[in-house]
């Protein structure tokens, strides 16, 4: 890989050298508060997480399940805004260089202003953005969402994505591709869907960037199974649920650390 200053790209190139899988953790920024988000990210880093996805809260997150929706509601009620999340990245950057992806919907970015959002997010220290309701087909909107050097646009591929659609998505991919391993919204599930390795192989035929698999992973065993088939795993709702349960506990960050560490070990086979 060419010289890069993007933390996501640096992380994957290091993991490749080490022969290890990536662990991506999602949390809703601002739940229970933006101050706590800084602490939770530090705890995730201590747990061995490689990349953090920060959910920028939106009132109508249609691609998310109830756990993430309630987290976004709590964040909004606690006063989180798009600008507040960007300020929080600055606070995180004072003590950490962990790669950060902003995970959100189009309307908050649209309201903020596409260019301004990119500039501010990048300057604050974000490394990537993933917009759940902006498919590549929306050419005009995608053209306006001009990439800023150093800020990856993460692309998403689903089990329902037709074969002939994969190349066009893969061609735009930066940082990593997020393969949604099952139909449905975000949320923990008991089982692991079939056919993940086939799908990952199919995607890899069209793209150089790593493929991470998520949606529904909640145990170290599941993390290990999925990690064996991909370049990394994404765990979200299970962590968000823990934060929901212990949001008001003084030891929330250490609880997060204790919960995530075994998941990371599962994924990394350690």
């Amino acid at each position: 890989m060419a010289e890069t200053s993007n933390r996501i790209e640096i992380a994957f190139s290091r993991l490749k050298t080490e022969g290890r899988k990536a662990f991506v953790a999602y949390i809703a920024a601002g739940d229970p508060s933006l101050d706590q988000t800084v602490e939770i990210v530090a705890a995730l880093e201590r747990s061995g997480v490689d990349i953090v996805e920060l959910g920028v809260p939106f009132s109508d997150p249609v691609a998310d399940g109830i756990v993430n929706q309630l987290a976004a509601d709590r964040a909004l009620k606690a006063g989180a805004t798009t600008r507040g999340v960007i300020e929080t990245i600055k606070a995180i950057r004072e003590r950490s260089q962990i790669p950060i992806v902003l995970f959100t919907y189009l309307n908050p970015i649209y309201a903020y202003g596409y260019e301004q959002f990119h500039r501010d997010a990048h300057q604050a220290g974000a490394d990537g953005i993933l917009v759940l309701d902006l498919p590549p087909d929306e050419a005009a909107e995608n053209a306006e969402l001009k990439p800023v050097a150093g800020l990856n646009h993460i692309q998403l591929i689903a089990p329902t994505t037709p074969e002939d659609r994969i190349p066009s998505i893969a061609a735009k991919a930066e940082g990593f591709i997020y393969y949604v391993s099952r139909l449905g919204v975000t949320g923990a599930r008991g089982d692991i869907p079939q056919g993940i390795s086939e799908q990952v192989d199919r995607i890899k035929q069209h793209s150089e960037v790593p493929v991470c698999v998520g949606f529904g992973i909640s145990s170290p065993e599941q993390a290990a199974q999925v990690a064996a088939k991909a370049d990394g795993v994404v765990v979200g709702s299970a962590i968000v649920k823990l934060i929901e349960q212990h949001g008001s506990d003084a030891d929330l960050p250490s609880r997060v650390e204790a919960f995530v560490k075994p998941l990371v070990h599962g994924a990394k086979g350690a």
């Binding site: 691609a63 498919p135 909107e141 689903a158 089990p159 329902t160 994505t161 139909l183 449905g184």
Partner: peptide, 8 residues
Amino acid sequence: FMPETLMA
């Protein structure tokens, strides 16, 4: 403006 899962 839909999630990828529904585009197909």
